[in-house]
Computed example of a mutant assay.
Amino acid sequence: MNVKNKGMLLESIINSTNLFYFNQKVAMIHKKNLDVQFKGVDIKNHKLVLKEATIKSKSTVDYYGIYKGKFLAFEAKSTEDKNLSLANIKNHQIEYLSLVESFGGIAFWIFYFKIQNKFILIKHSDLKNIIKNKKTLSFDLCKEQGIILELSFPGVLDFINYI
């Protein structure tokens, strides 16, 4: 699988879920876009051509929104291995979710383990405690510390009741 498309299944399911929650007036959750700067812009044949894009700054986390009047933020990660390499979890993501919690918001992670075909939600405060001095996060440890999420209505990963 192409590395740039690695998390597309999880992202598609979460985006579908967020739309479902919005339409049902349960929660409003958005995908955060990267802050991109373009160095050159041309117009050719009445089409805008963007050149040389760079990411201006690190993103915070993948998703943010509001549920029952509370701010929420979460990061989604996929792995095609038995375990999740903690190299995939960036310090700025941990720091951001820690800040969300410190201000009374809801912070969590959703992991997709492709080999086991399981989605697991782990609250940020729980994840911080289990990743200390580790290089990988095992599926079994995630299963123990988190909540296995089931796909329900077509394309909906119902996580809202577990936060």
Rank of each mutant, 00 (worst) to 15 (best):
W109G: 01
S138D: 03
E75Y: 02
K128T: 14
D126K: 06
L19S: 12
I14Y: 03
G105T: 04
I115M: 13
S138Y: 02
K4M: 04
K6E: 15
V61Q: 09
N117R: 12
Y64M: 14
A87L: 14
M8D: 12
A73P: 07
I29E: 02
L141N: 03
I130M: 11
H124C: 07
I89C: 06
V100D: 11
D62Y: 04
S138M: 02
Y21H: 04
I131R: 03
I120D: 05
C142S: 13
A27P: 08
S102W: 03
Y63R: 03
H92L: 06
K114W: 00
F139Y: 15
I66W: 06
L121V: 02
Q116C: 10
Y63A: 03
D62P: 05
N129Q: 13
I14V: 08
S85M: 06
K135V: 06
S59C: 10
K32H: 13
V49A: 08
L99A: 10
S78T: 15
I160N: 00
P154A: 09
N133Y: 10
N88Y: 14
N18T: 12
V100Q: 09
Y112R: 05
K31V: 00
I55W: 07
V41L: 14
L97N: 07
F22H: 12
W109I: 01
L127F: 10
V26M: 14
M1G: 15
K68V: 01
L151N: 05
V3S: 13
I115P: 13
C142W: 12
N33D: 12
V156G: 05
S57A: 12
L48T: 13
K134F: 00
K77M: 01
L149N: 10
F38K: 01
I147L: 06
S152E: 11
P154G: 03
K70G: 01
F113L: 09
Q24M: 08
N91F: 02
Y63M: 04
K82G: 07
I147D: 00
I14F: 06
I43C: 10
F139E: 08
L10A: 03
L50Y: 11
Q116M: 05
K77R: 12
Q93P: 11
Q145V: 12
D126M: 04
D140R: 07
I163L: 15
K90E: 14
V36K: 13
N2Q: 10
V36C: 07
N83A: 13
Y67G: 06
V100L: 08
Y64Q: 08
I55N: 12
I29A: 06
F153C: 06
V26R: 03
F111S: 06
I94H: 01
S57K: 13
V156M: 02
G104L: 09
E52R: 08
K118P: 04
I163H: 06
L127T: 05
S16Q: 10
D35Q: 14
F113D: 00
L19M: 15
M28F: 15
L127H: 02
D42T: 11
A107Y: 03
L137R: 00
N88L: 11
N5W: 08
L97I: 05
G7E: 13
K6S: 14
I147M: 01
K44S: 07
F153K: 11
S16Y: 01
K90A: 12
K82L: 11
G104I: 08
L19T: 14
K25G: 08
F111H: 03
Q93K: 07
N91S: 10
L157D: 03
F20L: 07
